[in-house]
């Protein structure tokens, strides 16, 4: 599980560097009268890939912040119940998002929708977003199993 999350994060890292380079190529080319037409589209699609593939690792590393004022006053037992319920909700939620993105990708493929300038197909990216959200819900499920076994994670 961890290995996959780390691998996905590495892919995202490559996307980040690519986003930077594509924009710089566009700016550099622009100075010499040859801007990279549609660089915005490439950057937007790379950004979507970047975020989608970072989702599982970001969740594992607790990047998303929550309000802990009340939580810190919970008893260990309450914490365990609270966290288990949250894991169930989150896992169901991101499975839904993943499934919907998968269906949406199919729709866009069928319709033939592409980006405005470069006419790049969008559905590939949506499959990636679907994979990112799907793997995120797997990560949450494994967290749930751990909580049930060992109690709440701090």
């Amino acid at each position: 599980m961890n290995k996959v999350a780390v691998f996905m994060k590495k892919v995202s890292g490559v996307m980040l560097v690519a986003m930077m380079l594509v924009t710089c190529l566009d700016v550099g080319g622009n100075i010499f009268g040859h801007p990279l037409l549609g660089s915005e589209e490439i950057v937007s699609l790379l950004a979507a890939l970047l975020i989608a593939f970072t989702l599982p690792a970001a969740h594992q590393e607790r990047a998303h912040i929550g309000v802990d004022m009340l939580y810190l006053r919970f008893s260990p037992r309450t914490k365990k119940i609270n966290d288990s319920i949250l894991c169930v909700i989150t896992a169901i939620f991101f499975s839904l998002v993943s499934w919907e993105c998968f269906k949406y990708a199919g729709d866009l493929k069928r319709i033939g929708q592409v980006t405005a300038v470069l006419e790049l197909p969008i559905y590939y990216i949506l499959y990636a977003v679907s994979a990112g959200c799907g793997f995120l819900s797997l990560v949450v499920v494994s967290q749930l199993l751990k909580i049930i076994r060992e109690g709440s994670h701090e």
Binding site: I111, Q113, A116, E119
Partner: peptide, 8 residues
Amino acid sequence: LYTRGRFP
């Protein structure tokens, strides 16, 4: 125009 390819 916003959904290129959808309305060929």
